[in-house]
Each structure stands twice: as structure tokens, then as C-alpha cells.
Design a binder for these strands. Sequence first.
DNA 1: ACCTATGTTGATAC
DNA 2: GGTATCAACATAGG
Length: 251
Amino acid sequence: MPELPEVEYARSLIQKKALGRRIADVDDADTWVCRPHAPGEIAAALTGATLVEAHRQGKAMWLEADGGPPLGVHLGMAGRIVVDEVRSTRGWDRFSLRFEDGGSMALRDKRRLGRVVLDPDLSRLGPDAAKVTRQEFRERVGRGRVALKARIMDQSAIAGVGNLLADEALWRARLSPMREAGSMTEAELDDLRRALRTATRRATVRGGVHTGALIPHRQTGGRCPRCGAALERDTVGGRTTWWCPVDQAQV
DNA sequence: ACCTATGTTGATAC
DNA sequence: GGTATCAACATAGG
């Protein structure tokens, strides 16, 4: 689930329900999710503090605390944020805060690929895919010999695009995922940026990348919802990729 | 039972 | 430096 729209949902949930509540206790015992911190380190830094702001850039979140360092939270491949829910009986709450009022916030993540870290390093993160300017997008995406899809999923180029959103946006822009990034014209780059913004905004409003127009058809026997051609499947940039060989013909 | 697949990212090798 | 591959985790499905 977690691509930009899901992370934005998590961020707004935290903003609505967790800000302003004083932290009474922290469970940071999962040394894999909280690496490189030792157990108790995050607890020592945040106990007694209050979350005052929830930020996001791409898929990275960080929570500002008064009386403590910022707390970086990444949902990984299967993580989500829950606030004031009963503790997972399956042990999937990998990190949690208990508030003074008795409530809680947790990173619930069965895959355990999420991360929680103090003072997160965001220096290698590109501009947010929903906010990147036209000029920045042209410069950062339209270069190199790598496949276009790999480029837009490169978080240091632009931040927030995952496997599903990439397929959806490329389909909307009618561009081949295998196209060499550096071969793109400015007009094509501008189209792609617009498709990406549209797909991202729609998914955010409608509740996740799964609500995309192409996504439900990414399966054996799936057909292009626009022209009806059989979708093709292959690995591009190391990820399973579905596209319409007619609408998104390689140039 | 065994194999493959899965929304992410980071370390490593060329 | 840019790019490709594999591994980290845990589960679901054929």
C-alpha cells in the first residue's frame, strides 16, 4: 500500500489525532525497525515530549516534537499508522507511543520493513512528486540511460512514486515504461508530470493507489481500460510492470 | 510441500 | 557516478 497517497493519509491521521498529546511511554524494543538505535534510545529522547507537527516528503514522514528530536517514520512495504486502536494481537505493532491520556499511536507492519529513527537523514530525497516544479521535473527525470519507469521511482530524483503509481502515471501519459529517460522531449516530460500529479491527487482523495484506472487490470488476462488491448507484463527497473503495448508503444 | 509473488529501500559490485 | 542486482522482512497464493 504505502506510496505517496497512503503516506499522506497516515500523515494527516497523525496530524488530526496525535498532535498535542504528551508522550508517556515509548515501545522501541524492535531493534530491526528502530535500527541503528539501541532499545530505549528513542524512548529516552521522546518520553515527556509532545508531537507538534507531522511532515511528509515523498514516502518519508517525520514528526516534530517539542522537547525532543524529530522522529522519522517510514511505512516500508506494508506498514500503516494506527491511532487509539487496541494493540495488534499478532505482534505487528513494531513501534508505539503511549500518550499521557491513555491513547496510543503505532506503526503496524506485518512485513517489518518499516523504519523508525531519530533525526532522519532526508538529504538524498528528491522533491515531492506532487509538488515538483516543471523545471525541476525536466532536469531530474529527463536524463540518463535508465528506463523511464526506474527513473520516476528513484526517490532521489523525485520522491513518492512506487511501483503501482508509476504504472498508472505512465499509462495515463501514454509513455512506454522502457523508454530511455534521457530521450524524453520537454513536452513528454511535462505530460508525464501532469499525469503523475493527477494520478497522485486522485489516489489521495479516493483512498489509495489501488483506486487507479489501470491498477485493477494489472493481472493475467488484463486489458487496457482505454483501448481494450491485452496488457503486457515484464520486469522493468527490477519491478513487475504492466503496460498497454498499443497506447504506450515504444517510440 | 515447495515455489513464487508482493506496495520499499539499501548495500554491493561492475 | 550511474546502473543493476540481491538481500532484508513476513505473509499469501498457486
